[in-house]
Simulated assay, not measured.
Amino acid sequence: MARKHVGLYPGTFDPVTVGHLDIISRATRIVDHLIVGVAVNAGKGPMFTLEERVGMVRESLEEFGTRAVARIEVMPFETLLVNFVKEMEASVIIRGLRAVSDFEYEFQMAGMNARLDNTVETVFLMASERSHFISSRFVKEIGRLGGDISTFVTPSVHDRLLRRFAEEG
């Protein structure tokens, strides 16, 4: 029996956007099983807790209508990425690129990960033309200022964001 090809798509997902979901959906075409790794990443000062972000990704996959949802697992992690990749028995890190400005950082990260473990490959997926401008940071900023963010996130994430903005006052 052939070995299952496992990929890992890491991120903070604060919040998960339709851009992330597009990358997730497309990544399932190149791996047999996809793990969406939700990072603690306290350095970014996330708006939502780790548990909330994991829940939002799971809910959003259902809402987004991802066909391969049965082959996707959502898991939190707070370790070095290459260690988590090995722990999950994955062989590929999936990264999304929105713009040329993303490339330099992602290129350095891929090089560092390869240096730490040369058995793990990094695959870059270009954001689709309908989502290349979407970022979690922009979604939060637009939403806080009263802009319409409903096309950038799923309905459940939209509701959570609006509740969080109301709590912030």
Score class of each variant (00 low, 15 high):
104 E>I: 08
43 G>E: 10
9 Y>C: 02
161 L>S: 03
11 G>V: 05
26 R>P: 02
66 T>I: 15
144 R>L: 13
147 G>M: 06
3 R>S: 12
6 V>C: 08
52 E>S: 08
161 L>N: 05
133 F>P: 05
163 R>G: 10
7 G>H: 02
169 G>S: 13
158 H>K: 15
77 F>E: 01
29 R>Q: 15
39 A>T: 11
8 L>S: 02
40 V>G: 08
102 D>F: 06
43 G>Y: 09
120 V>G: 01
5 H>K: 15
45 G>V: 11
32 D>W: 07
97 L>A: 07
119 T>C: 10
42 A>Y: 15
85 V>N: 01
8 L>I: 11
93 I>D: 00
39 A>G: 10
105 Y>I: 07
142 I>F: 09
123 V>R: 11
93 I>V: 10
8 L>G: 01
81 L>E: 00
138 F>W: 15
136 S>C: 04
3 R>M: 14
52 E>M: 07
96 G>T: 06
122 T>I: 04
46 P>S: 03
165 F>Y: 13
132 H>C: 15
29 R>N: 15
96 G>W: 01
161 L>E: 02
64 F>D: 04
30 I>S: 06
105 Y>P: 04
88 M>T: 10
138 F>Y: 15
99 A>G: 11
101 S>C: 10
92 V>Q: 09
72 I>V: 11
123 V>Y: 10
7 G>N: 02
118 N>D: 14
65 G>V: 04
126 M>P: 14
109 M>A: 08
151 T>S: 14
1 M>F: 14
111 G>K: 00
128 S>N: 14
24 I>F: 09
105 Y>H: 09
117 D>T: 06
88 M>D: 08
107 F>N: 06
121 E>T: 11
121 E>H: 11
16 V>K: 00
57 V>C: 06
36 V>P: 01
43 G>H: 11
40 V>K: 12
21 L>D: 00
